[in-house]
Amino acid sequence: MTRALVLTAPAPLSDADAARAFAAAGCAAWRRLAPEAAEAEALDADRARLEAARAALAEAAVDANLVPVEGRHKRLLLADMDSTIITVECIDEIADFAGVKPQVAAVTEAAMRGELDFDGALTERVALLAGLPEAALGQVWRERVRLSPGAATLVRTLGALGVETALVSGGFTFFTERVADAAGFASHRANRLEVAEGRLTGRVIPPILGREAKRERLAALCAELAIAPAQAVAIGDGANDLAMVEAAGLGVAYRAKPALAEAADARLDHSDLSALLHLMGVAPERWVRA
Rank of each mutant, 00 (worst) to 15 (best):
A38R: 04
L57H: 03
F22M: 13
G238A: 07
L77K: 06
A264D: 05
E134Y: 11
L128E: 05
P35I: 02
K101T: 09
A275R: 02
A98G: 07
R144G: 08
R144H: 15
C90G: 04
L5T: 05
R3L: 09
I86Q: 01
V233I: 10
R156V: 12
E70V: 07
V104E: 08
F22D: 09
D63I: 01
A248V: 01
I208C: 06
L225V: 09
A25M: 05
W30R: 01
I86R: 05
A190M: 08
R113Q: 14
P207T: 13
R203C: 13
R215H: 15
P10M: 09
D44P: 02
E216T: 11
P229N: 00
E285R: 14
A243S: 12
R156K: 15
A105G: 01
E124T: 15
E197T: 12
T157H: 14
L277N: 08
V88C: 12
N240W: 08
R142Y: 05
E51G: 09
G159C: 10
G202W: 03
P258R: 15
A228N: 12
R192P: 05
V145H: 02
S187H: 14
A25T: 03
L154H: 02
R289V: 14
R31M: 06
F118P: 10
C222P: 13
Q103E: 15
G251I: 05
A56C: 06
K101Q: 15
P206A: 13
A29Y: 03
G171H: 05
G184R: 02
L218G: 07
I86Y: 01
R211F: 12
I208K: 10
R20H: 09
F172N: 01
E36P: 01
L147H: 02
R286F: 13
A230E: 09
R192T: 15
A11E: 14
R189D: 12
A228H: 13
L43E: 14
V168M: 07
G281C: 03
E194Q: 14
L122G: 03
Q103Y: 08
F22S: 09
N191R: 08
D80H: 08
P207F: 12
K257M: 09
E39R: 11
V107D: 07
T201R: 13
A56Y: 02
E143I: 02
V62N: 07
M112K: 12
W30T: 02
T173R: 14
A248Y: 01
A34K: 02
Q139P: 00
A4N: 04
A190I: 08
T165R: 11
L50K: 07
A38D: 04
V107S: 08
K257N: 13
S83R: 01
A136G: 00
R289G: 03
E124W: 11
E41N: 07
G202P: 08
A58R: 14
E93F: 00
P133E: 03
T123E: 09
W141M: 13
